[in-house]
Design a binder for these strands. Sequence first.
DNA 1: GATGAATGAGTATTCATTCAT
DNA 2: TATGAATGAATACTCATTCAT
Lengths: 218, 218, 218, 218
Amino acid sequence: MTMTHTHTGVQRGKHGKAERQQALVDAATAVFAEHGYDAATTREIAERADCSEGLIHRYFHGKRGLLLWILDAKAGEYTAKLTAALPDRDTLAEEIERLLAYAQESMWEDRDFMRVSVSRSVIDPEVGHVIGHHLNEARVQLIAEKLRRHQRAGRIREDADVVATAHAIAGINIACGFFAQVVFAMDRGEMRRYSHGIAEVLTRGLEPDSSQSSTTEG
Amino acid sequence: MTMTHTHTGVQRGKHGKAERQQALVDAATAVFAEHGYDAATTREIAERADCSEGLIHRYFHGKRGLLLWILDAKAGEYTAKLTAALPDRDTLAEEIERLLAYAQESMWEDRDFMRVSVSRSVIDPEVGHVIGHHLNEARVQLIAEKLRRHQRAGRIREDADVVATAHAIAGINIACGFFAQVVFAMDRGEMRRYSHGIAEVLTRGLEPDSSQSSTTEG
Amino acid sequence: MTMTHTHTGVQRGKHGKAERQQALVDAATAVFAEHGYDAATTREIAERADCSEGLIHRYFHGKRGLLLWILDAKAGEYTAKLTAALPDRDTLAEEIERLLAYAQESMWEDRDFMRVSVSRSVIDPEVGHVIGHHLNEARVQLIAEKLRRHQRAGRIREDADVVATAHAIAGINIACGFFAQVVFAMDRGEMRRYSHGIAEVLTRGLEPDSSQSSTTEG
Amino acid sequence: MTMTHTHTGVQRGKHGKAERQQALVDAATAVFAEHGYDAATTREIAERADCSEGLIHRYFHGKRGLLLWILDAKAGEYTAKLTAALPDRDTLAEEIERLLAYAQESMWEDRDFMRVSVSRSVIDPEVGHVIGHHLNEARVQLIAEKLRRHQRAGRIREDADVVATAHAIAGINIACGFFAQVVFAMDRGEMRRYSHGIAEVLTRGLEPDSSQSSTTEG
DNA sequence: GATGAATGAGTATTCATTCAT
DNA sequence: TATGAATGAATACTCATTCAT
């Protein structure tokens, strides 16, 4: 707050490669989120980063390259954030509950940039690959690992397919976290309630058979 | 009918408003699917429908209106197709299995148009609403109804949330049927195998407790 | 002079395909000649033709297409003009003299557009082909035909290679008519004098042997 | 020489002004030949010379200056090469024959750089002047000198205009050597045959009258 | 009612050149 | 002195939409 910064970093015309690249990335992230990829103009991005349009092409090979770059950068962040936000839980029910709830929250917060990534991923195969590999795959891995831990602890049947379930949960994440809430504009409270129901079914579906199954709302 | 006018007007393609509209809708469906919404040009659509570009604006209020119109039209078809393709099954396992399998197949076949609808739905709120309401909602209803039937027949616990589960299944449909296969280019055979695992977990999660649980490949 | 024409043809916004195409061709011819191909802008061409830039692309497939179109159109004109300007002469000396003199004059008059065609022909193979085939080839044909007539009349040796000579004359035309005068900025009077000398040598080189050769200004 | 500085400046490529200039000239010659003047970028030139773009401006006042410099440098080389490649011949026929044949060969070999020089000469008056003065003029001089020698030896008529003829030959050189072969993409073998015919006519046109004229392949 | 000619606003991209370091 | 980061002006081309015919 006490800083004397004019904008973010270096002054116009002055040298400062790293700062400018970062400024461009930040500006682009914002502009993409605000207007969507297509409606975003390199001019506005450059203006907001307070540098020339040419730099976008020199550093990132154009608008598309800039999006790809941002996506790559986000990939690391996302996984870290996900891991941090989802510490291991003691019960399976709780674990799944959190998995669904967190997606609901985080995708809503990130909805603007999600819109950009998802819509582009559908259109641009390379973006699709980045999103699929670095973001979805990573999420599936993380979920599967968590489930495996519960399985080892005997809280999940030996014969349950945890990887398949991880895919299902990741899918429900994107469908209910992003599409239902953001794209289909469904009622968020309602979706949150559904999450409970879904978690309950999944938990029960995974738990060992015998039991008196102490599920969610036991 | 007398046809003695020298060149009064209509000389091309189909005559009559309805035929022309249909020709335009068919052409647009094809062109959108081939190039995606943005890359599709009104010129190509008009050319392929063998009429003038102006008509797209007169009849559908422009390119966007044409897409919306097509989406609306598809809504009815889709639900009918879905209902027809998914006759009621005798066991819950079979029912869920088919629900997942059918999405996998149909979304793959329809992938080109899916791309268009999904990418636009993310960007254009009105498209999002149409898709969400007419397509997703309808699917959820259909699934929920099926589950309710099984519930009434005692094949699903009284306390299971069938609507929530319906949302989950519809979500897995779009995630595994469209995103995994089409956008993330994952192996289709692998996804099909996951479907079995998911179906198994869901089935078990819904079935009454007591049981000797006759699941999928029991 | 008494006409009420605003520009050349139709008013802005009004329909009139043929007139607009012509206006565009005229404008482009002028702009290319004034600034050269590269420095010419589609904007200036459109402005001068008093229509939108888009038309250049719709009608001629862009700037390059416009040049090609103009070149094609000129080809016919040129040959006709050449034929008209060079009626058959009674003596070989006179014939060759005129062949050289005319190139000197006409290429000077047309120097601006020559610049464009020649510089582009060197760079753009398609332009090179058009120029080579439609303009140079045509000129060679015309010269060869003239020489053949003189040969039949006994004013050129039987064993002289008239086609080769036609190529030589066409070459001297472009070299002395265009390059020397226009590109190398040599003295035009001097070049005119050289033409006489060249004509004299060529005439003598072609004439039957016996004689005391009544050359040019005998 | 002491070389103990850590990183004071020069770290790349050749050191010393002269070497750097030469590296730049060599690189530019190659890049101009490969892509043509316009398509050539100062960045590629600098990269290939392994030094910074700024140097092009410091040493040569920009891209255009670099071309001009190269042209100047070539001028000397060219004349020397020409002289060396065309030793005096004993007969006029042979002399002219060689004059035409050599242009055919050398311009083909040098066609890439010829393209650059010729296309620019047409567009840029200063380049036109350099080419005209240093290259064409020099060629004319050399040819004229050769012809004069034959004239002094009585192998050319007293009254033949050797300078005009030199211009004609130089013109045929550029027209048949460069334009016909390279720009118009004519058949090289055919052009070579025409050269013979042209040489024959020119020789005969220059030779003293009386004679039984021992021409080319008599 | 239908045509298709015309529009014009809009955009990514390129590159020689400059100048802070 | 050399670097290379930064500039910004300049341009061809696209396309949904409008409107004269």
